[in-house]
């Protein structure tokens, strides 16, 4: 019973920390006073949908492999959070062993995809120059989280270890680059509304409406 409470507390801490970090910035929030040329809402919709497809961006086209690898890792991470939630309920044990092994294997693959990212960081000149030490540890912390999720799904006896690591991850998250898990969603929103408002995204129109 202690571990689930710890996980919940760590989750709350994570959210609170985010709120604290955001607060001073939110106080400076201002509407955009320029006359719109396009639609901010359409831009936001685009940013969260088509705009996330790798082939719509030069970065996705030129780094297709890294994109796929990264996407896989992130699917694994979100799945692991789902697993974490399930371990807090009695339902996980109810899944047939075959299904659990399948999920565990998939998670293991995504974990590997994450660790390959680490390899890239060591190997590529640009990434080496850009990286700070925390970039390496963050991957390790998260890859271990996904790996432990896989293990906990396959061997329920390891659930305690998985939950403990999850709690640690959630406590560490606000101080780490991992907070991009929240800021990603904010960024896409601001990006979409900004370029949507200016009529650059989703697609330019010929003449501004009067």
């Amino acid at each position: 019973m202690v571990l689930p409470i710890l996980v919940a507390a760590a989750f709350l801490f994570s959210l609170t920390a985010l709120a604290v970090r955001l607060r001073p910035a939110l106080a400076l929030r201002k509407p955009d006073f320029s006359r719109p040329r396009g639609s901010a809402a359409a831009g936001v919709a685009y940013a969260y949908s088509i705009g996330m497809l790798p082939w719509t961006k030069q970065s996705g086209r030129e780094h297709a492999l890294a994109y796929v690898r990264g996407a896989l890792f992130h699917v694994g991470i979100f799945l692991s959070f789902a697993v974490l939630a399930l371990t807090l309920t009695p339902w996980l044990a109810g899944f047939p062993a075959g299904q659990r092994t399948g999920v565990a294997l998939f998670l293991a693959v995504t974990c590997l995809a994450g660790l390959l990212g680490l390899w890239d960081r060591f190997r590529q000149r640009n990434l080496r120059a850009l990286s700070v030490p925390e970039d390496y540890t963050a991957i390790v912390v998260v890859a271990a989280f996904v790996g432990l999720a896989a293990a906990a799904v396959r061997w329920p006896g390891l659930t305690g270890l998985f939950q403990a690591w999850s709690a640690w991850l959630l406590l560490y998250l606000p101080f780490s680059k991992l907070r991009h898990v929240w800021f990603f969603f904010f960024m896409r929103y601001f990006y979409g509304s900004h370029f949507g408002h200016r009529g650059v995204l989703p697609h330019p129109r010929m003449l501004e409406a009067r």
């Binding site: 910035a25 400076l28 780094h63 850009l130 990286s131 680059k177 991009h180 800021f183 601001f190």
Partner: peptide
């Protein structure tokens, strides 16, 4: 910081140093 609204804060905190922006 006194000029950092939510959009700018997101730009500061969302970057993961993945480097795929290089060629752009």
């Amino acid at each position: 910081r006194a000029k950092t609204g939510p959009a700018l804060l997101s730009s500061l905190d969302a970057c993961v140093r993945c480097g795929v922006c290089a060629e752009s």
